[in-house]
């Protein structure tokens, strides 16, 4: 991502970080909640902010970094506008989630190891069970669940997202 943009993003939200810290009473036991809210704000966890959070909570930066890299929800790289989570839980796996994932990645042209599209529009992740196993295989886009999916349907969902439509 280009530097200037990042700067702007940071400037907008630095204030927010303090508000978030304030809300959580500067309590290190709320670190996970704090990071969740920060990620909500920035869509990822920038290094500077994490260092700042460590200072404010009076814990070491390594501790914050350790927590941030432990939980799957956190990302230290910018994420796309839409987050597509493909379930690869047991129920979805036995019903063909791998094919769905492959179709999505192909459609978005993601190379091996890539999670986010170059235009920062989509991030594709796999998760273990969204809890809608009865609809397996399932995907969730920005917390909205779709299922059962197949290669065809998933393309339909993506097209609609690209157009900016609400999909049903």
């Amino acid at each position: 991502m280009e530097k200037p943009e990042q700067g702007v993003a940071l400037s907008r939200s630095f204030e927010k970080v303090n508000a978030i810290l304030e809300k959580h009473g500067y309590n290190p036991s709320n670190l996970i909640g704090i990071l969740q809210e920060i990620q909500e704000e920035y869509r990822y966890l920038p290094e500077e902010i994490l260092t700042y959070v460590a200072t404010a909570l009076r814990v070491s930066p390594a501790y914050v970094y350790g927590v941030a890299t432990f939980y799957a929800q956190f990302s230290l790289k910018p994420k796309g506008k839409h987050i597509i989570r493909v379930c690869d839980g047991t129920a979805c796996h036995v019903k063909g989630s791998e094919k769905v994932l492959k179709a999505i990645r192909e459609y978005l042209g993601l190379r091996d190891g890539e999670q986010t599209t170059g235009d920062l529009l989509f991030t594709v992740e796999t998760v273990a069970c969204i809890g809608a196993c009865a609809l397996a295989p399932v995907i969730a886009v920005d917390n909205r669940v779709y299922g059962p999916m197949d290669e065809e349907k998933v393309r339909h969902v993506l097209e609609a997202l690209e157009r900016g439509d609400e999909v049903s």
């Binding site: 290094e47 994490l50 260092t51 070491s60 390594a62 970094y65 350790g66 890299t69 432990f70």
Partner: peptide
């Protein structure tokens, strides 16, 4: 601190 998890876990300084 410990960073990452599972087989990818490491012990390393921040970032």
């Amino acid at each position: 601190d410990f960073t990452h998890r599972g087989a990818k876990a490491q012990v390393e300084p921040a970032f």
